[in-house]
Amino acid sequence: MSGFGIYLVFFLIIALNYGIMVLGLNLQWGYTGLFNAGVVGFYAIGAYGTAILAGPDRAALIGGFGLPFPLAILGGMILCALAAIVVGLATLKLREEYLAIATFGIAITIQLVALNFESLTGGANGLVGLPRPFIDAFESTTSYNLFFLAVVACVTGLVYVALEAAVRSPWGRLLNAVREDEVAARSLGKNIALIRLQAFVLGCTLIGLSGGIYVAFIGFVSPLDFLPILTFQIWAMLIVGGSGNNAGALLGAIVVWALWTMSGLAISRFSPVGFQNQAGAIQTMLIGLLIVSMLIFRPRGLIGERATVSSHKERGAP
C-alpha cells in the first residue's frame, strides 16, 4: 500500500469519527434548533469515561478498570447521556444564544475539571498507556488501521441509518416542528420540554461515542484534546456540509477535516525553504477564508436541508 493510501486510511478514521460527532450536533441543531456550543465538553466526558473504564490499574489513580473497549465505550456513552440529562434539565429552558453561552461555559468547566481532578483524570499529564483494542490480532499497523477504519465506517453507517430512520419518523417531524414553531407544536398538545431533552441527550450520547472511539484509536487522552477550538471545528463541519441533512453532516466532516489538515501538507510541499514558519500562519488564514467564502456563497452548505413538501402535493410540483 502506498504511503498516501496509508495516510488516507488514517485520515478517514479521524474524519468519520468526527462525522459521528457532527451527526449528533446535527440532530440537536439541524433538526431541533438547539444551539449546543458545548460539543467538546460531551466529547471529553465520552473520552475520559472510556479511558477510565478501559485503562490499566494505577496506584495514583481512582480509575483503571481494564474493561474491554466495546464495554468501556458503552460506559462512556452512558456517562455522557447522564451528564446530558443533568445539563439538559438545567439549561434547555434557555433559548438560542442563551443556551449557547450556558453550554459553552459547561464545556469549559468540564475541561477544567479534567485538568484539575488529578486522581481521576491524571491532570495535565493525561492518561497514558491505554491499551489499543485488538492490536494483538494484527501483524502490521497498516492492517490494524484498515480494520479500525472498517469498524468506524460500520459504526458511522449504523448511526447514519438509525438517524435517517428517526428523523423521518413522526418523532423526527416533531423535532422539526419544535425548531420551526414551538408555540404551534405546543398547541397540538406536544410536550416540548421532553422533545428538546430527548434530542439533546441523544445527540450528546453520539458525541460521547465519538470521544470513546477517539481514545481507542489514539491510546491517550489529555485536557489539551478538549480545547474550545474543537467545538468550532465541529460547527464548521456541520455548516459547510449543510445542517438539517445527515449526508451533509458526514460530507462536511470529511471536507472540512481535509481542508484543515491537507492544506498544511500542500503548503509545506509548495512553500520555499526558509518560509516554513510562515506556512503555518498561511494555512490558518486559508482555512478561515474558505469557511467564510462558503458561508457567503453557499449558506445552505454543500448539500443542505431538503425542502419539506406536503405528501399530498404532487411530486415535482414547486
Partner: peptide, 11 residues
C-alpha cells in the same frame, strides 16, 4: 520539513 500543529493534538 516543518509542520504546524496549531496547538491542537488532532492537527
Amino acid at each position: 520539513i516543518l509542520r504546524d500543529d496549531q496547538g491542537s493534538p488532532n492537527v
